[in-house]
């Protein structure tokens, strides 16, 4: 059955059709929530919330985009709200700012050590996923919003409450870090020339 047909049935109240849509999209939605929240439990909650929201808003879904794109956007918005709430909590409880690039704050990444299994993907796709896990959150979040959610710099600045220049530089930094991680990981790019590695140390 096509997505369109599933959506049509789900709109008419067919729960089995909606369940199929959940099954088809759950990994992408969960992965996005995990990459933005950095926490497996939160990610599962956010992903569930996204599908519940999709179910409730189905009557107003006009099919102007695919269901996958739509639910992805709902997920992004829920994650942004979650990050906002988290920022407010951190503001009220005085602590080291997690967004301070110079604080040397290390990624807690409870999901890094997890012996979870990566879904079937190309070696490059898996390497990239591993690389993203190692990025500090202040770099990973803007990059994910850019590359996976397709947001503009302006939208990202608004979502993460940063100024435009910071967004731009963090995304650039994130890409550079990712490249470095992947070079060290091996076989990601064509073998780097020696002067590139030297240059890397300078940066």
């Amino acid at each position: 059955m096509t997505d369109q047909e599933l959506v049509r049935r789900a709109k008419a109240g067919d729960q089995d059709a909606f369940e199929q849509l959940v099954l088809d999209n759950q990994n992408r939605v969960y992965s996005l929530a995990l990459r933005l929240s950095g926490d497996r439990e939160e990610a599962a909650d956010l992903a569930q919330e996204a599908f519940l929201k999709a179910w409730r808003s189905l009557p107003s879904f006009q099919g102007e985009s695919s269901f996958a794109t739509w639910v992805y956007r709902l997920t992004t918005n829920l994650c942004i709200d979650y990050l906002r709430r988290q920022r407010r909590r951190q503001e009220t409880a005085p602590s080291v700012s997690l967004d301070d690039e110079e604080s040397g704050w290390a990624e807690p990444a409870d999901w890094e050590q997890d012996p979870h299994r990566k879904l079937e993907a190309s070696e490059r796709g898996r390497a990239l996923a591993r690389g993203l896990e190692q990025l500090p959150e202040h770099q990973r979040r803007p990059l994910i919003l850019r590359e996976l959610s397709g947001m503009s710099y302006q939208e990202i600045a608004q979502a993460l409450d940063l100024d435009l220049g910071t967004v731009k530089s963090r995304i650039a930094r994130a890409r550079l870090s990712l490249r470095k991680i992947l070079l060290e990981d091996g076989n990601f790019f064509d073998p780097p020339s020696s002067n590139l590695t030297k240059k890397e140390n300078r940066r």
Binding site: Q26, Q48, K118
Partner: peptide, 17 residues
Amino acid sequence: AQLAEEEAPPGFAQGVM
């Protein structure tokens, strides 16, 4: 475009339904 996805927790869709 080929980024590997994480697998949703077991029973996720069931929980949603």
